[in-house]
Structures are given as structure tokens and as C-alpha cells.
Computed example of a mutant assay.
Amino acid sequence: MSGQDIVDYSKLPDAELAVLLTGGDQAAFTEIYDRHWKLIYVHVYKMLRDEEDAKDIVQEVFGNLWIRAESIKNNTNIAGLLYTAARNKVFDLIERNKVRSDYIGEIASFISGTGNDQVDTIDEKRIIEILEREIQKLPPKMREIFELSRKENLSHKEIAAKLNISEQTVKKQVQNALKAIKPKLNDMGIGIAILLLMR
């Protein structure tokens, strides 16, 4: 880029850096990295509690940003793009069972804490898929009753008749299932809780 050495990239807003980045401007990429890597790393580390995994994710996120620079759309929110990419990488780790499920609440806090102006709409489908695995860990009978209650919307009376057990047993099993699952929803937001537990 002609005149690149006289441009003070540190004074350019993210939007202008993004435009330069799409043109393969390495100095713009370096400025984006310097500006955002620490915040992304801190959030990823809070979720994973593992320095090496956090560093790997940050490097991969920025590496992919450079590799795919040409495909970045106009008016892209670079901070939001980086947060979303980091979030998805952490989800990938969870789905490969490399992260303990008790970090799910912290992951949700990370998502909600970034603000609507920086992150795209929460990918509820992926979060629910993670929590679905917690349901699958319930004892078979408890899981069956819980799914009849929350997924098929059957009343306790209908479940009792269907499974030939007492309504009290149904109620107790649903309560026990909720006690087992709700900690995984810690700080996750009422919308997701409703989607998973109240339907």
C-alpha cells in the first residue's frame, strides 16, 4: 500500500482497519491484533481455565481472520466477529468433551457480558445442544419423565397414566431432574432456561 509508512494505524477506527484488512493490509491486521487480542484471551481463559488452550484459540481466531480477510463484509463489527469466533471455538472444545460441563455458566456469562453491540445473537441452538447432553446424563426413568414433561408437554397426570406410576412419583422425578440440570443453567439467561425447561 502506497504511503503505508505514514499512516498511523493506531488512530484508525476498527471499521477502517477492517476495510484495509480485506485488501491484505498486514499493518491493519497487526493493529487489530494488538487492539483486541488481550481482551479475547482474558475472556477465553476465564471460560477454559487453561492457558495453553486459551492461547491456541486466540491464535486460531486471529489466524483465521487473516486467512479469510478478503471475505470480510463491509461494515463488519471486528470486535463482534472476534468474540463470535472465539465463542464458537470454545463451543467446539466443549462438544469434543475437552471442557468440563460446570463451565457452561461461565461461558454464558462471557456471552452476555460482551454486550449486544459486540456479539451477534446468541447461538441458542448450540447452547441447548450442550445442555441436552446434561439431560442425557440423568437416570433413564428420570430422563424419560422429564422429557415427557418438558418436551411433549404432558401433565403429571398424563405421564403417570402413560407410565403406570403415581403422580407424586412423576412430580418428584421432575423436581429431581430440575435440581440436577439447573446448576448448568447458572447465569445463562431466562430465555434459554425457558426454552429448555419451561416448554
Score class of each variant (00 low, 15 high):
Lys73Pro: 10
Tyr103Trp: 10
Met188Phe: 01
Ile111Glu: 04
Asp117Pro: 09
Glu152Ile: 06
Lys137Cys: 15
Glu70Asn: 02
Lys184Asn: 05
Ile122Met: 04
Asn88Pro: 11
Val174Met: 05
Met188Asp: 07
Lys171Ile: 08
Glu167Phe: 11
Asn176Gln: 10
Gln173Val: 02
Glu51Ala: 02
Ala54His: 07
Phe91Ile: 14
Arg150Asn: 08
Leu163Met: 15
Asn77Pro: 02
Lys151Met: 11
Ser166Asn: 06
Ala180Gly: 07
Glu70His: 00
Lys182Pro: 00
Phe62His: 07
Glu144Trp: 09
Thr84Ser: 10
Asp56Asn: 07
Met188Leu: 00
Leu81Phe: 08
Leu131Gly: 07
Thr84Glu: 12
Met188Pro: 01
Leu81Thr: 01
Gln175Asn: 14
Glu95Thr: 12
Glu95Met: 09
Lys73Thr: 07
Asn74Gly: 08
Ser112Met: 15
Lys98Phe: 01
Ile122Arg: 09
Arg49Leu: 15
Asp120Gly: 12
Ile67Pro: 00
Ser109Ile: 13
Arg100Cys: 09
Asp53Phe: 00
Ile104Asn: 06
Gln175Trp: 12
Arg126Leu: 08
Ser101Ala: 15
Gln136Leu: 14
Glu70Ser: 05
Asn116Met: 09
Ser101Glu: 15
Lys73Ala: 15
Leu185Met: 02
Asp187Val: 11
Glu70Ile: 04
Ser149Ile: 04
Trp66Ile: 04
